[in-house]
Design a binder for these strands. Structure first.
Lengths: 231, 231
DNA sequence: AAGAGGGTCATAAAATATTCACAAAGCGGT
DNA sequence: ACCGCTTTGTGAATATTTTATGACCCTCTT
């Protein structure tokens, strides 16, 4: 699951570095622009998930950047957090009025910044909900699996087993490991039981034709793997 | 286009009156609740477009009110502006973290308030009035549901359950999640109870014929889904 | 008091999981 | 290639778990 892309627009190198550094440490992808021109140009090319915008900028002001972003359909809904040195209320109001989603007064703590960023991003969380392997697609949210567009129907255990394998493609796991990771029940289960489930998984996976996606590694275990025919 | 409905939750009569009066002058429809209980009860009956919530309230705290609103599917996206006398940063953060959309520190000017209200309403346009899934249509205002034009009659609980599912189509939810989001917060309810309501919902949904729109995912839960019958 | 709506339970029905026994297939040594 | 020892694939019987249902009771409204 990868975190959001942020764009920091700030002309003061020290502050820019401080903010960028800390946000990166939180796991965000952070880009930096030193002025409004650069920022707008960057956004035109690759729209970030959130913009942190300083009010005072050389050239185009932050307020103006904000306004222009709001004009474009592509960026009209792009979340913006503005910050400035002025604590005057009138500015805050103007900022929000122009379309900023939030407002921070310098100096602000990193915790305050994180809280705002988190709050804003919560509205549109991207998720690593789809696993893929070859033409196999598993949607973990809707709990559906398909191969070549054909929908497959898997029992709970086969589903978990496949999920685990898809999370670690091409890797060989012993029966013990598979039991440990893909089984919920703690009671002792025969190692050979894994064989049976692998068989059922294979059956379902291959019912529409196509190569066997599960490789048996003698004396070791199984792996989700494509390369099969070493003719 | 008529202005938004606001709910002011504030126990101090003077402040409540001041805020209400001024917002009304701006053209908003303003309702007032003096404590959390009343507020939650009001929201249950008629969902406003935005809530102005004091942090300190007799009985249930504003933070708690906020949290409960977020849990319920019906109100999960409802914009909330919190305000309190404390200006401490930690509180601001906690407030935002709980899901408040904005935060004002008392005392605040009416202009500041207007700006926030406007900003919030602009970015969170009134929630969907009509939910659709396949030929299912739910009108959240008139509280009516129909399938293929045939009107259905659902009990309150089945209605909330269906509403929640329609808000997240094709997504599988565990019984715990369904209880959490579609039930009124109250006493503990058996997980199996969900089965019963799902059954009642199915009965009503399918009484006019047609495929079952609720998919059972064994060992996981249920999802609103067009159950694709494998040939 | 009657009717709704909602929560629990017991039980029937399904859907899956686990084992087992034996066939099949792979491997190493001769 | 042939054998014997292992490890894996299968099919079927059996055991478990999870869902679907129908009935019943309770509470709140009307």
């Amino acid at each position: 699951m990868h975190k959001a892309d942020l764009l920091v627009v700030e002309d003061d190198p020290a502050l820019a570095r401080l903010v960028s550094y800390n946000l990166e440490k939180q796991g965000y992808m952070v880009r930096h622009a030193a002025d409004g021109e650069v920022a707008l140009e960057y956004v035109r090319q690759r729209r970030p998930d959130l913009i942190l915008l300083d009010w005072m900028l050389p050239g185009i002001s932050g307020l103006e950047v904000c306004r222009r972003l709001r004009e474009q359909a592509r960026t009209a809904a792009l979340p913006i957090i503005m910050f400035s040195a002025r604590g005057e209320e009138a500015d805050t109001i103007r900022g929000l009025d122009t379309g900023a989603d939030d407002y921070l007064v310098k100096p602000f703590s990193m915790d305050a910044l994180f809280a705002r960023v988190k709050a804003i991003l919560r509205r549109a969380p991207p998720a690593d909900k789809t696993l893929r392997f070859d033409t196999l697609v598993m949607d973990r949210v809707s709990h559906k699996v398909e191969r070549d567009g054909r929908q497959l129907s898997l029992g709970p255990t086969e589903y978990r087993l496949l999920e685990f394998l898809m999370l670690h493609p091409a890797q060989v796991f012993s029966r013990e490991e598979l039991l440990k990771h893909a089984w919920e029940r703690s009671s002792f289960v025969e190692l050979r039981t894994v064989d049976v489930h692998i068989r059922r998984l294979r059956q379902t996976l291959n019912e529409g034709g196509g190569v066997d996606l599960i490789r048996t590694v003698r004396a070791r275990g199984y792996a989700l793997d494509k390369a099969q025919d070493p003719d």
